[in-house]
Design a protein around this nucleic acid. Structure first.
Lengths: 237, 237, 237, 237
DNA sequence: GATGAATGAGTATTCATTCAT
DNA sequence: TATGAATGAATACTCATTCAT
């Protein structure tokens, strides 16, 4: 086994949690569809790992959710660790793909940046599964992400997009000169991540629900404001 | 058990994770010291829970680290859940206490705000234990923080400090008018938290170490910049 | 879990404690037989619970006796409590089934009654397992018997038999008029139960072995005498 | 240690569960009363062992009930086994003493017998503690009763009383000739014991409460009837 | 490909008992 | 006499993984 690897083998068509297969007739069908079975397992695993973390996740629950036998998981994915790797990579793929749906060239650079921020905010806020999976992976010291060859690969286009936007904004003199794309992404991520990742402890602290639609709508505006205030700051050091 | 409770019983002198007592000579000394034993367990638990999360933590490891028998944990803390509650509350107490060491009245409001940001940044970056504990608690849906009576209590002074700073800055016309203290704290936390919480996945993405002193020093300046740009933005919405 | 339930799932062919399968060749035979495994566990559990009571029983000993892995018990029976329920129900089934082997209609009512008494006496005296299981269940306040749906169900035919016998004896004017079937059964049970249930304390009191065949044979006659004297008493109150 | 022994050391004045000592001022009294402390422990132990059986009983609960420290139990009674022996002997002493309060010589032998039956019935029915203790001891194969020197000793007067009654009844030709005192006692005990010992399983079987006062009153009459029918049976074999 | 019976190593928790003070 | 901190052995239960069919 190499230093890094990818667990994503067959092309997974459609990353959403919907199972397009004729779900209930499967049992009696006799012969099953290997690709569909693998996909069902993967989707069940993504949900389970996001919900319970790696060590809290149960192979049995994944089997029940995917309606497969225990052996199938070992047949298709080898073991719990590699199944988790596959789930992690698939999750990253969803957000990275979505980011690439933005058009960074045509629009006004400020609008392009705003669109990226809003996409990130919405993606993380709408479905906490991804945030939970990332949090769990970090609690495990990123030992699985390190094994992945595809994760750094998927990051390139994102960085390229940000750099394109920044370059255009700086050229047009609406952005500060010395903004670093990586750092900017970290800031955006931090501002879009925290109320999802820390939703429950913040609720205990402030006795308020940080998933309330009204609060989220207002918060979304603030996050955009914080980033754009900074990036357009004329006094920029 | 009632709605909320606190697991912090005896006054714990010195909340840092360092054990000032001559740890290894205890066994032979024949001294029985309930308070010290309890404190040793608590500190070991804080480290273990931060390192491995709740379900990944092992009672046996805590025992070994605290150099006590298994039964002592159950004698002093009841069970793993309540030990975890005590560790969580103690951890919160450390940062909340430190925040209160700042003087919010005397200084220039911008400097006061900057000091709070830097304190938060440094506290979270220097020792990832707190961040990890909070992340784990959120992965568990905050079910333990909810049981705590002291956590919301400890938050009051922090909010009061922020409001005091904001009021003075607005009075002196250096801050925007419509900044909400709660939202401001969430922004600060997000910016100071993300490179610690997501250290490992960000490393996989960007192939760089986000705990490097140089990077941290630069990031610290940026975080202050982001917040102050926003809060002093003359175009304030 | 609902109010009452039954733990008896697959039909257990042959309720005696004997294991008809070639027990020790199973391991090497490579055969996987769920029904037989379940049955082996159940029989081992009946013996263990009878021998040591519920809390004194050890899951490990049941495993060893049934020659199965610990996990199998939890796979087939859920937990210690439910395994105990299954053992209790199976034990009751044995005596209730045996009672139904008597023919209450054809014989002389006095002979029919005598047969029931003797069957009860012999069943309880021959194998103390059942008595011990019942004693233990009562020490636990019958909390498990209460959960069983089958125990009251199995009692009906017994009561019906007794009532049939009584009715015929009263019709033929050999029995007292006002004998209550339930109370009669309690008397019979008390007279057949005590020297088994209290065997050891009675031995300490009277310094004699109450399981000696000679004593039992004599006692059997006396018990029949006591009941028939009462039931045929012409001075019946 | 000898083959048999007695754990009853200091004379226990008053075997009822009442603690005649000034209960609540004890804590502040400083110096305590050794005899009273021992007695408090013994009474708490009798209740605990009757309630939970030997292995279900907890030293800590006994301590709490007796309001003493753990060490006191080991100081006064050595260990759990010996405390249990003391509790068992004390319990037997209560019923044996009560039996001796009957006057077997003056009364009509049938009335004397009836009085003994009723005393036994009432004693066992009124307080199930004794029955539970005996049941538990038998489940433990009487291993503790065997160690007791006082239990067989206390049985002599009971047997003597029964023999006296029987002899007078046979002399007066109201009793059968061939009644054995020991066997008669076993019958009486069985009839008086069963609805207490098997209260809960009988309740599950017959769906009725066997501790109901009305049922008990009726049952008491029946038990007397059963015994006297037998003993006065003219057809006595 | 698919099933589910079987395994074994681990893990939180309990509890009688000891012992320094 | 009395206290309660400390010990260690035991015990029910979990779970990823294997393997015969």
């Amino acid at each position: 086994m190499k230093a890094t690897r990818s667990a994503a083998a067959p092309p997974e068509e459609g990353h959403t949690a919907s199972s397009p297969a004729p779900a209930k007739s499967r049992r009696t069908a006799g012969k099953r569809n290997a690709v569909a079975t693998r996909q069902r397992i993967l989707e069940a695993a993504m949900a389970e790992f996001a919900e319970h973390g790696f060590s809290g996740s149960r192979i049995d629950r994944i089997c029940a959710a995917a309606d497969v036998n225990v052996g199938m998981i070992y047949h298709y994915f080898g073991n719990k660790n590699d199944l988790y790797l596959a789930a992690l990579e698939s999750s990253y793929k969803i957000i990275r793909d979505r980011e690439q749906s933005l058009d960074v060239n045509d629009a006004d650079p400020l609008l392009a940046l705003r669109a990226l921020i809003e996409l990130t905010f919405d993606f993380l806020s709408t479905d906490p599964h991804f945030v939970r999976l990332i949090m769990n992976e970090n609690l495990m010291m990123g030992r699985t992400a390190q094994r992945s060859a595809t994760i750094p690969h998927m990051t390139r286009p994102l960085l390229d997009s940000l750099r394109t936007i920044l370059k255009r904004g700086q050229k047009e003199k609406v952005f500060q000169k010395n903004i670093d794309a990586e750092n900017l992404y970290v800031s955006i991520l931090g501002l879009c991540f925290i109320h999802v990742s820390n939703r429950h402890t913040l609720s205990s602290m402030f006795q308020r629900d940080f998933a309330e639609p009204d609060w989220l709508a207002q918060r979304r505006l603030i996050v955009v404001d914080v980033v754009t205030s900074y990036i357009t700051d004329k006094a920029g050091k």
